[in-house]
Computed example of a mutant assay.
Amino acid sequence: MSETLLAGKCLAVFDAYGTLFDVHSAVQRHEGAVGPEAVPLSETWRTKQLEYSWVYGLTGRYRSFWSLTEAALDFALARYPGVDRSLRGRLLDAYRDLDAYPEVPATLDALRARGLRTAILSNGDAAMLERAVASADLGRHLDATLSVDPAQTFKTSPAAYRIACDRFGIGPEAVLFCSSNRWDIAGAAAFGFATAWVNRRAAPDEYADLPPTIVIGSLDALLVPA
């Protein structure tokens, strides 16, 4: 773990979906029933979920992230009509209980052992996050689970990132923000956070004017000395 990266930091903040939780594990759990279109269905579901959050956030017509998750799945099922629509309920139930990436608990504990507090800051609404955290047994590894709900908008709005600062009574300079989503890293960098882009899928970089502080392949790389 880079001591330079953590210098002056007292809080490590994590995006939830895609960073701590594998968003594709819901479809993977029912891959046999979904059939050969499982991968594109899951990709479309995730893409539309995010697109809807940006559209509703920018237009000022906030909707809960769960309602957007449902709407995104409906679009994906319409896009791939060969998938049995009766799976909708099972897929949504699986999304409520997504798998955490295997390195997550130990990484959170290691950061706390080094004196940092740990928190989730997510577009997910409170009920979604509470169930996901409980299902993955992550509650004991976190100091707070924060939803953007109070801001009535989504990341990348500065109001969403400010929630973490307000909750802990600190400035942006005291926060390390970790996300697998490059757009989220751009928003967090613009807000003033130090950022760790968890580039799990080896995606090409973008937003050159809003670079991450570091790029890592998985969260446990935070524990490797620089």
Score class of each variant (00 low, 15 high):
Asp143Met: 09
Val13Met: 05
Ala33Ile: 08
Leu142Gln: 09
Leu6Glu: 10
Ala100Gln: 08
Cys178Pro: 04
Val224Glu: 15
Glu3Leu: 12
Gly89Cys: 10
Arg200Thr: 14
Gly60Leu: 06
Gly60Asn: 06
Leu219Trp: 00
Thr213Asn: 13
Leu129Ser: 11
Asp97Pro: 01
Arg90Leu: 01
Glu173Gly: 06
Gly57Thr: 04
Leu222Phe: 03
Trp66Met: 09
Arg201Lys: 10
Phe154Gly: 14
Val13Glu: 02
Glu37Asn: 13
Phe65Pro: 07
Asp74Lys: 14
Glu37Arg: 15
Pro150Arg: 11
Leu116Gln: 06
Ser135Asn: 08
Leu5Glu: 03
Val133Phe: 00
Ala226His: 09
Ile185Ala: 00
Leu68Phe: 12
Trp197Cys: 07
Ser25Asp: 06
Gly192Asn: 02
Ala100Thr: 07
Val148Arg: 06
Ala164Ser: 11
Arg114Thr: 12
Trp183Leu: 06
Val104Asn: 06
Pro172His: 04
Ser42Gly: 10
Val133Ala: 01
Gly35Arg: 07
Leu142Asp: 13
Cys165Ala: 08
Leu142Val: 05
Leu116Pro: 07
Trp197Gln: 03
Ser86Tyr: 05
Leu222Cys: 02
Val224Gly: 02
Ile214Gly: 00
Ala126Trp: 02
Ala226Arg: 09
Gly171Cys: 12
Leu116Met: 10
Gly139Arg: 03
Arg140Tyr: 01
Cys178His: 05
Ala33Leu: 09
Thr153Ala: 14
Leu98Ile: 08
Ala38Val: 05
Leu219Phe: 00
Glu43Gly: 11
Lys48Thr: 14
Val104Tyr: 00
Cys178Tyr: 00
Ser67Pro: 05
Leu138Gly: 14
Ala110Met: 13
Pro81Phe: 01
Lys9Phe: 02
Gln152Ser: 14
Leu91Trp: 13
Gly217Ala: 15
Ala12Ile: 02
Ala202Arg: 13
Met128Val: 12
Ser218Trp: 12
Gly32Ile: 07
Ser64Gly: 13
Phe191Leu: 10
Ala7His: 14
Arg85Asn: 05
Leu219Pro: 00
Thr59Phe: 09
Gly35Glu: 11
Arg167Phe: 13
Phe177Gly: 02
Thr118Lys: 14
Asp166His: 09
Ile216Leu: 06
Phe21Met: 06
Ala106Asp: 14
Asp109His: 13
Phe75Ser: 03
Leu91Pro: 03
Arg140Ile: 08
Asp93Lys: 15
Arg85Pro: 10
Leu77Glu: 13
Asp166Arg: 15
Ala78Asn: 09
Leu129Asp: 12
Leu116Tyr: 12
Glu37Ile: 01
Ala72Leu: 08
Leu222Trp: 10
